[in-house]
C-alpha cells in the first residue's frame, strides 16, 4: 500500500499518493487549473512541462507548472479556475 499525503487545494484538503504531481492533486480536488486570457477554463494538456496550461499558485508563488512539481504534505495550492 502506497503512503498518501495531504495537500490543500483552494482551501480544501486532498489526499494523493506520495510522489504524485501537484497537477494530480488539483485534478483530484476537481478544480480547474486556470482561466485563459479570454476566460476559458483550462487544465493540464501536455503533462510534461511544455504547454504551461497547468499553471497554479503554490505556497504563494504564482505561475508554477503543476505537472512539473511533486506534491508535498501541507502544500497550499491555489487555482484561478
Amino acid at each position: 500500500m502506497s503512503t498518501c499525503i495531504c495537500v490543500i487545494v483552494n482551501g480544501k484538503p486532498v489526499e494523493v499518493v506520495a510522489g504524485a504531481s501537484v497537477a494530480a492533486a488539483v485534478a483530484r480536488a476537481g478544480s480547474r487549473f486556470r482561466r485563459s486570457r479570454s476566460g476559458e477554463a483550462r487544465a493540464a494538456l501536455c503533462g510534461m512541462g511544455v504547454c504551461f496550461e497547468c499553471r497554479v499558485e503554490i505556497d504563494g508563488v504564482p505561475q508554477q507548472q503543476a505537472c512539473m512539481l511533486i506534491a508535498r504534505a501541507g502544500m497550499q495550492v491555489r487555482t484561478d479556475g
Binding site: 499518493v17 510522489g19 504524485a20 480547474r32 487549473f33 483550462r42 493540464a44 503533462g47 510534461m48 505537472c67
Partner: peptide
C-alpha cells in the same frame, strides 16, 4: 479541460492523475 495529449495523458496518469 479533459482533453490532453496522448503521451500527455500517459504522463499525467503516471504522476497520479
Amino acid at each position: 479541460p479533459g482533453v490532453t495529449g496522448a503521451g500527455g495523458l500517459q504522463a499525467l496518469a503516471k504522476q497520479g492523475w
